[in-house]
Write a protein that binds this DNA or RNA. Structure first.
Lengths: 150, 150
DNA sequence: AGTGAAATTGCAGTCAC
DNA sequence: GTGACTGCAATTTCACT
């Protein structure tokens, strides 16, 4: 992981479809070393995958909600149960077990408030072991990661 | 946006490098309609970009921290100022203006606790107008989005 | 909107240095 | 690392349904 590798990762994070040739041109190198470096970064797991990024609003997911969830019981079994349950819900796009003022932070995408309310009442709140749920509604996305700070 | 378009988006979100030919095979169609649909999805902004996904831990970003930030003053000018400042910090990978028990939720990547402490003391806490910062440290990533729930 | 084949073209991958 | 080379697969087009 030298400066060239970092530069390659930055370019690929910005544009996963950039060609070896173009990377080479931007870094003032030829294709051979770039080709080998990219393959190495893939092989060694620095690059885990390539993905198309889909516009959330275009597919009608208008709402982002963060929920702070607190559980009643904290034995391993109960945590595992909660984690397994939460993964089933398609509305939950991220879930973190955190150390802080609550137990889990979950991020939810919903089409609208009604869908979120359904999720909360019928899905989340109906799980056993939930003690407290506190929702924060996203008004604006001030910054969203496009690439890791290398 | 019919079922075929959705299926295409799902495949491309999972693997941005999948070929037109392979999508066609999976959906039991030929390349021509897939080609045109993909171009349309790109052209109309459903697909905003293609990216390489880099392994956070491989590049030594071991810590994820979520901060709940509360400001003192909430006039537009002060909000804009804070939002502008926060965007400068490379440690901050996401920032949301939320309606809830605090004002902003920020997500931070750090190499280690020392780096986070430096960020907190020297960068975040030294901004004007900060009233309260409450950190939650991620212990485990229970679920992380790989594709939008379409 | 789809098929199926054909045309094109530019990239991935290789090699000698 | 360079630079040239090439096979070939993928994209892209077209006539037709």
């Amino acid at each position: 992981m030298d400066a060239t590798d970092k530069a390659i990762l930055l370019l690929l994070q910005k544009n996963g479809k950039i060609t070896i040739k173009e990377i080479a041109e931007r870094l003032n190198l030829t294709t051979t070393p770039i080709f080998e470096r990219v393959k190495k970064l893939e092989r060694e797991g620095f690059i885990t995958s390539y993905k198309a990024i889909v516009d959330r609003k275009k597919v009608n997911l208008q709402l982002i909600i963060f929920c702070n969830v607190t559980l009643n019981l904290h034995q391993t079994d109960f945590l595992k149960k909660f984690e397994k349950d939460i993964q089933q819900f398609p509305e939950v796009v991220e879930c973190y077990h955190v150390a802080g003022m609550f137990d889990y932070l979950i991020k939810i995408y919903a089409k609208n408030m009604e869908e979120y309310q359904q999720f909360l009442s019928n899905k989340l709140a109906s799980l056993e072991n939930i003690s407290k749920v506190q929702s924060s509604f996203v008004m604006t996305e001030v910054k969203t990661l496009s690439h890791l700070p290398l």
